[in-house]
Amino acid sequence: MTKLTGTAEKAKKVRGIVHINKNRCKGCGFCIEFCPPSVLEFSDEFNAQGYHPPRLADGDGCTGCDLCGMYCPDFAIYAVMIKNRQQGSAAHHDAV
């Protein structure tokens, strides 16, 4: 379900990775509107609930600030910073 989108050959520049759970999305647009570097846009596809989930328009731009994750009322999107990702496993374990 959770999909990681990135651009491998530009990995050095990528600071954040955004994860989108498409089928949870209800298309409110909060994440797209309030993304500070404006890297998200509505996709053309429909999800299982009939909404257009967001997609990453600019794979380079995500800063991993997770404001999308903070805004998303449907728990359908979140972002992590690359450096956090490497420590992520342990951090998550603590949270559980």
Partner: peptide, 19 residues
């Protein structure tokens, strides 16, 4: 080239707190 990688271990932070 864009690619899709398998979901990492780290999940949405809210998930640890919701059913």
């Amino acid at each position: 080239m864009s690619l899709t990688v398998e979901a990492p271990v780290q999940a949405n932070p809210v998930e640890a707190f919701v059913r």
